[in-house]
């Protein structure tokens, strides 16, 4: 009996590990962006896949991350600039902000005070968030640009590189 249990653990244990390893290797330009389904401030779940058809910036950030906080103003400018633009690979631009905050009041206060008007979701699990594992996030800030079909078209661009990275897909 013990041997049977051991065999079962070996079989199911290893199969449980492999998908995670496989997932962590696929966050590359040209590959599909894994689904994210997380609650917004209001508590309703917003799926990344619901933005299909648009060019989407997935912004991984947190209020405790100094460079992330500093970047939010630039994101506001980009959102204003490209929100209604048409791209070769998407109609309109959206930002899907995923926060690795641990406490809701910090997250909520920042969003409200800074009048952030794009999508914000979080499971409030800090670095333990399963999304951080799925997306193999090593540090913040971290972002991905995803096209209308959900394919990753750029990885971790910031500042002028991010602006140019979005602009290059504009319909001429």
């Amino acid at each position: 009996m013990k041997i049977l249990i051991l065999i079962a653990v070996l079989i199911f244990g290893s199969s449980a590990i492999h998908p995670v390893e496989a997932q962590s290797n696929i966050i590359e330009v040209g590959n599909k962006s894994p689904e994210i389904k997380l609650p917004s401030l209001k508590g309703d779940t917003i799926a990344l896949s619901s933005l299909k058809g648009k060019l989407v910036l997935i912004d991984f950030w947190a209020t405790w991350c100094a460079p992330c906080v500093n970047e939010q103003k630039e994101l506001a400018d980009l959102y204003r600039k490209y929100k209604h633009a048409d791209f070769t690979n998407g109609k309109g631009f959206e930002i899907y902000g995923v926060s690795l905050d641990a406490k809701k009041p910090n997250w909520e206060t920042f969003i409200v005070t800074n009048k952030i008007n794009w999508i914000q979701v979080s499971d409030l699990k800090f670095w333990r968030s399963p999304v951080a594992k799925t997306y193999n996030i090593q540090e913040l800030p971290y972002n991905l640009l995803v096209d209308g079909k959900g394919m990753i078209v750029a990885k971790n661009l910031h500042g002028a590189d991010l602006d140019n990275g979005i602009a290059k897909f504009l319909l001429k």
Binding site: T63, A66, V69, N70, N106, T109, F110, T113, N114
Partner: peptide, 15 residues
């Protein structure tokens, strides 16, 4: 410097 600025910003942001 960024961390210092962050603390300044946070002070205003967190009321």
């Amino acid at each position: 410097i960024l961390a210092f600025l962050f603390i300044l910003i946070s002070t205003s942001v967190f009321g």
